[in-house]
Simulated scan of single mutants.
Amino acid sequence: MPIPEVLNAEKFESHKELIRILYLVDGDFKNMCDDYSMSRFCIEKYKEKVAQDVGVKKEYENLFDELEKEILIYIKKNC
């Protein structure tokens, strides 16, 4: 069973072999590593969601501005 990719990070480079062994034989260490990996995944997913949310928010802001202009034009035409 391979270790999670996130454990191949530079900060763990000097402990790579020990991490691999502990991951295979120590359930507590494996759980900690799996939680670490999941937390990294969630961070990345959250970053993507925030970026998507910002884009959607911007689209609604643009729509709001356009509709506001159209309403003002409509009101001026019908006064």
Rank of each mutant, 00 (worst) to 15 (best):
M1T: 07
P2F: 08
P2T: 04
I3E: 06
I3Y: 03
I3P: 00
E5G: 07
V6K: 13
V6W: 02
L7F: 01
L7R: 02
N8R: 06
A9F: 07
A9T: 07
E10Y: 12
E10P: 12
E10S: 14
E10A: 14
K11Y: 09
F12V: 11
E17L: 06
E17F: 01
L18F: 01
L18Y: 09
L18S: 09
I19C: 03
I19Y: 01
R20K: 10
L22A: 05
L22I: 02
L22R: 09
Y23N: 00
L24M: 08
L24T: 04
V25M: 05
D26W: 00
D26V: 03
G27F: 08
G27V: 00
D28C: 06
K30F: 04
N31H: 07
N31S: 02
M32I: 02
C33H: 09
C33W: 05
D34Q: 10
D35K: 09
D35T: 08
Y36R: 02
S37L: 05
S37N: 06
S37Y: 05
M38H: 03
M38G: 00
M38E: 08
F41W: 12
F41L: 13
F41R: 09
F41P: 06
C42S: 09
I43V: 10
E44H: 11
K45Q: 13
Y46C: 13
Y46E: 04
Y46Q: 12
K47T: 02
K47H: 03
E48G: 06
K49P: 09
V50I: 11
V54E: 01
V54L: 10
V54A: 01
G55F: 11
G55E: 15
V56H: 14
V56C: 12
K57F: 15
K57C: 15
K58R: 15
K58H: 14
E61D: 13
E61S: 00
N62T: 06
N62C: 09
L63M: 13
D65M: 13
E66K: 15
E66F: 14
L67K: 15
E68V: 14
K69Q: 03
K69A: 07
E70A: 14
E70C: 11
E70Q: 15
I71Y: 14
I71T: 02
I73G: 01
Y74L: 09
Y74T: 10
I75T: 00
I75S: 01
K76D: 03
K77L: 02
N78K: 12
C79E: 05
